[in-house]
C-alpha cells in the first residue's frame, strides 16, 4: 500500500465523518466540528495530491489561504452560535425556526 493511496483513503474517511456528523447532529457546535473535520480531510487530500505531483510550493500557498479562510468561517459561525444561545438558551438547530415560512 503506497502512501498516496493511504492519504486519499484517510481523506475520504475524514470527509465522510464530517458530512455524517453534519447530517446527523442538531447541535450547532457539533455541526461546526463536523465541518472542521471534513475540511481537514480536504486539506489532507490536497497535501497528498501536491506531494504526488511534486507541486508542494504552490499547494502550500493555497493551503495557507484555505486555513485562514477556515479560521474566519469558524469565528463567524461560533459568534452566531453564541448569539443563538443568548437568545434561546440552547444550541439546537431544529429550534431555530424564526425564518421558517
Amino acid at each position: 500500500m503506497n502512501s498516496l493511496l493511504l492519504n486519499y483513503f484517510a481523506a475520504v474517511l475524514m470527509f465522510f465523518i464530517g458530512v455524517y456528523t453534519m447530517a446527523a447532529s442538531r447541535n450547532l457546535i457539533r455541526l461546526l466540528l463536523g465541518l472542521e473535520v471534513s475540511s481537514k480531510g480536504c486539506m489532507l487530500a490536497f497535501v497528498a495530491a501536491a506531494s504526488a505531483t511534486a507541486n508542494m510550493a504552490f499547494a502550500q500557498a493555497l493551503l495557507v489561504i484555505m486555513i485562514s479562510v477556515e479560521a474566519v468561517v469558524v469565528a463567524v459561525g461560533l459568534i452566531l452560535i453564541i448569539r443563538a444561545w443568548r437568545q434561546r438558551g440552547n444550541v439546537d438547530a431544529a429550534k431555530l425556526s424564526d425564518l421558517k415560512g
Partner: peptide
C-alpha cells in the same frame, strides 16, 4: 505532522498555529 513529513513546512506551521491554536481556543 503529516504536512511536515510531506515537505510542506509553511502549511504545517499555519495549521499548528491557526487550527490547533486559535480555532481550538475559539471552540
Amino acid at each position: 505532522a503529516v504536512m511536515f513529513s510531506a515537505n510542506a513546512p509553511w502549511a504545517g506551521v499555519f495549521e499548528l498555529s491557526v487550527c490547533a491554536g486559535l480555532i481550538t481556543v475559539l471552540f
